[in-house]
Amino acid sequence: MSPTSDDHLEQVTVRRSPKYSVFLLLGGAVGLLVAMILTFLFDGTTQESPNTGLVYSQMQVFGFLLLIFVSVGVALGGAIALILDRVYARRARTLQVEHERIISAD
């Protein structure tokens, strides 16, 4: 016997969506860059901290800034991805497609 086909029209919604992982990684990378710039641009590590009375090395200051700015960068990257996702959701289009299923008669 020959195969038969079952086809019908369906409506589908087509829209773009941002890749969240790319935005999160890019935000973290920007945070890393900002922490690096602030660490090596300003030299405040030779002075004693007024809160703890300790002198922090440049790598300790970089670590503190890295924790703060990478977290903020990841959060901002995620927020930008969410905003873009909402914008793209408004621009979604509904299309009609033909769905075809071939049924083999064995």
Rank of each mutant, 00 (worst) to 15 (best):
M59P: 00
L33F: 10
L65I: 09
M36W: 14
V30M: 14
G73S: 08
L33E: 11
V22Y: 09
G31Y: 00
S57P: 03
T46E: 10
L38H: 04
S57W: 02
L32Q: 04
F69C: 03
G28T: 04
G78T: 05
N51S: 12
L76K: 11
V72S: 04
L26I: 06
F64I: 06
F62W: 06
T52P: 01
F64Q: 07
Q60T: 15
A81W: 01
S49V: 05
Y20V: 13
F42W: 14
V72R: 03
T46S: 12
V34I: 15
F69M: 05
V61S: 14
G28K: 04
E48A: 09
I37T: 14
F40E: 03
F64A: 10
V14D: 09
V55K: 12
G78Q: 07
F69I: 03
M59H: 14
T52W: 01
L65E: 10
G27C: 04
Q58G: 09
M59I: 13
V22G: 12
Q58M: 13
Q58K: 15
T39F: 01
G27I: 05
V14A: 07
G53M: 04
A81T: 02
Q47T: 11
K19Q: 14
Q60V: 11
A35I: 05
A29C: 12
L26V: 08
T52F: 00
L54P: 06
V14L: 10
L24Y: 08
L82M: 08
A29K: 08
I37K: 13
Y20Q: 14
V74M: 07
Q60N: 13
I68L: 10
S17C: 08
V34A: 11
G44M: 08
I37N: 11
L67E: 13
F69E: 01
A75E: 03
L66G: 09
L38I: 04
L67A: 15
A35S: 13
I68M: 07
G27D: 00
L54A: 15
G78N: 08
T46G: 13
V70L: 06
M36G: 14
Y20D: 11
M59G: 13
Y56G: 02
L38T: 02
A81D: 01
L25N: 10
A81K: 01
T39I: 00
I37Y: 11
L67M: 15
G53H: 00
F69K: 02
L33I: 14
S71I: 04
G63Y: 04
L65C: 08
Q47C: 02
F64R: 05
L65K: 14
L32T: 05
A35Y: 00
V74Q: 01
Q60I: 11
F23H: 05
V30W: 09
L33S: 14
L41E: 11
G44V: 07
L67K: 15
I68Q: 06
Q60G: 12
G78K: 06
L54K: 15
G53F: 01
L67T: 15
V70C: 05
G77K: 02
L24M: 11
S17I: 10
L38P: 03
D43E: 10
A79M: 10
G77F: 03
V55D: 03
M36I: 10
V72E: 04
D43S: 12
R15E: 02
E48I: 11
G53A: 04
T52Q: 08
V61K: 15
A81Y: 01
F40V: 02
T46Q: 12
V55R: 12
V74I: 12
S21G: 10
F23C: 02
N51V: 11
I37R: 13
I68D: 03
L33P: 09
M59F: 12
G44E: 06
L65S: 09
